[in-house]
Write a protein that binds this DNA or RNA. Structure first.
Lengths: 122, 122
DNA sequence: TCGATAGTTCGACTATTATCGAACATTCGT
DNA sequence: ACGAATGTTCGATAATAGTCGAACTATCGA
């Protein structure tokens, strides 16, 4: 009995073109808290490695989330040596879905919190 | 052996208040083609029954989708006799997430289609 | 060349979601 | 009171998605 060996295939990233974006895929990508957080972070810093953005999550989980974000067209990943730089595809997104990402990013992460003022207004 | 009888509980709709909306839930609700279509339809007609909006889908499936839309805060359902009227919660959504729904609805359903012009541009 | 670092892939498991028929609740018209 | 119409609930099944350890690829630095 010969023990079979798993083959690992390292494909280059495939980023969809802007005309391949769909709203459904974008919304699905943004429906996960971890991914929404990543997108918000990228909106602030312009570029970041995958490692900078994990919230203590394992690498394989992060890799999964980045793939979903790439497939939706939200994120572009460029291999720069051993490090991979992620950026938001702002221009492409705005071409394909004008104003959409801006409206999304305009919503503050904490907008769900109840502030002291609001509590008093009862 | 006594045959047990399933009990059916008909609860009234529970609509979340605007401050309970979350972006994640809204995006998840919109990530399904059937639900996105429902929202787009409601944006055009102001109010519609569940039956008007099925695309040949069974009633139980539609009921499921409407529940997700309600839970996300996108749709309000009011029982008007035997019929249930659905409306978009435009005001609440705009209070909670200003400009978001407008930006979403501004994206045409067909914007993913390949037009004759584009095909020729190869 | 060896080790460290960054991130992907694989694979297994779990959890959430979608689909849909059948039974049911509710209201309306007659 | 009965039947038709509208939509929900239940329950089972199928499909999709998230989690994460282990093995791996690729690159960099010493």
């Amino acid at each position: 009995m010969v023990k079979s060996r798993t083959i690992y295939l390292m494909r280059p990233y495939k980023h969809p073109t802007a005309d391949q974006f769909t709203l459904e895929r974008i919304f699905h990508a943004l429906s996960d808290p971890a991914r929404l957080e990543i997108v918000r972070h990228l909106a602030r810093v312009e570029a970041a490695t995958c490692g900078e953005l994990d919230g203590g999550r394992p690498k394989s989980s992060m890799s999964h989330h980045f793939r979903i974000l790439r497939d939706a067209g939200l994120v572009h990943t460029r291999a720069a040596g051993a490090i991979h730089q992620n950026t938001l595809r702002l221009a492409d997104l705005n071409t394909r879905f004008p104003g959409l990402l801006k409206a999304i990013l305009a919503q503050a992460p904490e907008s769900g919190m109840v502030t002291a003022e609001r509590k008093h207004s009862l």
